[in-house]
Measured scan of single mutants.
Amino acid sequence: LKKGSQVEALFSYEATQPEDLEFQEGDIILVLSKVNEEWLEGECKGKVGIFPKVFVEDC
């Protein structure tokens, strides 16, 4: 996944840490960066945070 690409949430993700990005199933997320193999940083609904890659798929 490249910076600036968009992904769609397959499942809702509930934030458990302040840096987490919370979203609902079906939301479109703009990928800002790759944190590591399992986590991405993205923006959704004006909020920025990190989230697990397994919760999303390429649009």
Score class of each variant (00 low, 15 high):
P52Q: 03
D27T: 03
Y13F: 07
K3Y: 06
L1R: 13
Q24P: 02
V48Y: 10
P52D: 06
G4Q: 00
C44M: 13
E25G: 10
E57Q: 15
F51Y: 08
G26Q: 00
Y13D: 03
V56E: 07
Q17C: 13
S33M: 03
L40E: 02
E57I: 02
K2T: 15
E41G: 10
E8S: 13
Q17E: 05
E43M: 12
Q17F: 01
E14S: 11
L10M: 13
D58P: 14
Q17P: 00
E41M: 14
F51E: 13
G42K: 02
K53E: 08
E8I: 15
P52N: 01
G46C: 06
K2E: 07
W39I: 11
V31P: 12
A9T: 06
I29N: 11
G4L: 01
D20Y: 13
E19I: 08
V54P: 06
D27W: 03
E19S: 09
C44V: 06
G42L: 04
P18F: 03
K53F: 01
I28S: 13
V7A: 03
S33V: 11
V54H: 15
F55Q: 01
D58G: 15
K47V: 08
E37F: 02
T16W: 03
L21E: 00
T16L: 12
I50A: 10
E25R: 13
V35I: 09
I28D: 13
E57H: 11
E57Y: 10
Q24S: 14
D20F: 11
L32D: 12
K34Q: 10
E43A: 12
L10I: 08
Y13T: 03
Q24Y: 06
G49V: 00
V7I: 01
V31C: 07
S5R: 11
K45D: 13
N36C: 02
G42S: 03
L30E: 13
G49N: 02
E37G: 09
V35S: 06
G26H: 07
P18Y: 05
F55C: 15
G42T: 01
A15R: 07
L32S: 12
E14V: 12
K47I: 03
V54S: 15
A9E: 08
V35F: 09
Q6S: 03
I29F: 02
L30M: 13
E41L: 14
C44F: 02
S5G: 00
E19K: 02
E37P: 01
G42M: 00
N36L: 00
V48E: 00
I28N: 13
E8Q: 15
Q17Y: 11
G46P: 02
L1C: 09
K2F: 13
E37D: 13
V35T: 01
V7F: 07
F11G: 10
E41F: 14
Q24A: 10
E25I: 03
W39V: 08
P18S: 04
D58M: 10
A15G: 11
G4A: 03
L30C: 11
C59T: 14
G49Q: 04
K3P: 14
V54Q: 14
G49M: 12
Y13C: 07
Y13K: 08
Q6M: 12
I50N: 01
L10W: 00
K2R: 12
P52F: 06
L30Y: 13
W39R: 01
K53G: 12
V48A: 12
E19Y: 13
K3M: 12
I28P: 13
D58W: 05
G4M: 09
E19C: 11
E8K: 15
P18G: 04
L10V: 04
E38Y: 09
K47C: 03
K2H: 14
E43C: 03
V48L: 02
